[in-house]
Design a protein around this nucleic acid. Structure first.
Lengths: 245, 245
DNA sequence: TGCGTGCCTTGATCCAGATCAAGGAAAGCG
DNA sequence: CGCTTTCCTTGATCTGGATCAAGGCACGCA
């Protein structure tokens, strides 16, 4: 097992998540301050980032890669309770512990700040506090959509919703019904954990959607949505609402 | 169907949720200001409070009673995504719409503020913004515990967890393993909606826990936990973590 | 006092998805 | 290259909880 490594940080103005992360509305002076506080850490796919109960010594923005939050029952059953994509934030003001495990799903790069100085910055910079609030509320909305999925959707609806979410988060700009490809950053087993299913069911439902001409696979991890409308029908969602993270 | 009625507000200093709601850390001057802004609304059990997509004209603290947040799929399947108990907050800074329905589960009293002036107050009063953030993060924690429940727990574990949550939220002060009684504020059908089950399964699991000597019923809505340790075992949770809202 | 209505319980049956089991394909490595 | 390992697919079977169905209890109302 590798330890996380510390790497050179890119300059904030060139940062790919500059306009979506917690620092979205910082001005040049504030960025200079942040630049002096921050350090980059990288984790390899599979490595733990934080364990439940760990003391939270740093907070971070996810710069690159995918990480997951998960909870575990006494006997080992686990459920993912959140998926962190670039610009998502790890850590929370006013808490020194976290209640779930954070794991690198793919190779991950974090932009880290020591918790104490960061909290001071938040207290003194209203728009950072404000942005943090927005991010928390976005997560809450996503969590509630996921509760509907976990509690009431069928296996096929879960898979369709999962694919649709990835399409939306990876092709934010282009609209339309044309075919769009996505790369799944997780194994079947991890997808099952996210959706409250088993890996066999995940595999079968992917095969089902393929057989019905909704998607095609390039390789195991790369798929193309051929029939966007068909995919949406398969999610069971209302037209307007539903999960659009 | 009754309309909500507006009733006389109690004075803030006598308010039962004074120390837990969004106004928890307000000083006397701030309370005076709040008192001039607030109005009470009451809803009867079963009445809708807000529909999804409604424009959010007011925000509110729940003073008395129980309300639920729920989401619905195209074909009518519904899932509760939150339960609001006294001191919980309805509405969110920076959003003009909500993405779920809010319904009065029991008779409910709200302490309402017009959204615009309230947001102004939040912007000018850091500790209110701070408290709002805490409440949002508490909800997020609760939502994640619920995701674990919905995705991975068995029917019996779900019911045991549900009972345990009510015991904790209604008997916050007293600890210990002695028997404690709670009153369920919801019908079997509503409980089923909350737990991602059907009402028949809810009924059967209550009967099962009764047969096993974990709980007894006084009447349909009032139960006593006879074996607190047995109840906890039945939740499937780890000893330390789990849902303790 | 009897009847309707809402809510709950219990029984019988069914089925979606879990579990058990057996390979197959791709990637890393000696 | 061949071998291991990891991940994925597909088939067979099982089962927890859904669904279908039939009352039971308690309250309100005429």
């Amino acid at each position: 097992m590798q330890m996380p490594s510390t790497t050179a940080a890119v300059r904030c103005v060139e940062c790919p998540i500059r306009h979506r992360a917690v620092c979205a509305r910082c001005d040049d002076d504030e960025l200079t301050l942040l630049e002096s506080m921050k350090s980059y850490k990288t984790y390899e796919a599979g490595q733990p980032i934080l364990w439940r109960g760990d003391e939270l010594v740093f907070v971070a923005s996810l710069v690159e890669g995918v990480a997951s939050l998960s909870k575990t029952l006494e006997d080992g059953r686990t459920q993912m309770v959140g998926l962190l994509l670039p610009s998502d934030f790890i850590g929370r003001p006013g808490r020194t512990q976290i209640e779930f495990d954070v794991t690198a799903t793919t190779d991950v790069t974090l932009c880290c700040f020591a918790r104490k100085p960061f909290e001071k910055l938040v207290d003194e910079t209203p728009h950072v506090a404000h942005r943090l609030m927005e991010l928390a509320l976005d997560e809450l909305d996503a969590a509630r959509d996921w509760m509907l999925l976990l509690g009431r959707k069928t296996a096929r609806e879960k898979i369709a919703t999962f694919i649709q979410m990835f399409v939306h988060r990876t092709h934010i700009e282009e609209a339309g019904d044309g075919p769009s490809s996505i790369e799944l950053p997780m194994t079947r087993d991890q997808i099952a954990n996210y959706l409250g299913l088993t890996l066999e069911t995940v595999s079968r439902q992917f095969s089902g959607l393929k057989k019905d001409g909704v998607i095609t696979f390039n390789d195991r991890k790369t798929l193309t949505v051929v029939d966007m409308a068909g995919l949406h029908d398969a999610t069971g969602d209302d037209d307007d609402g539903g999960l659009i993270v």
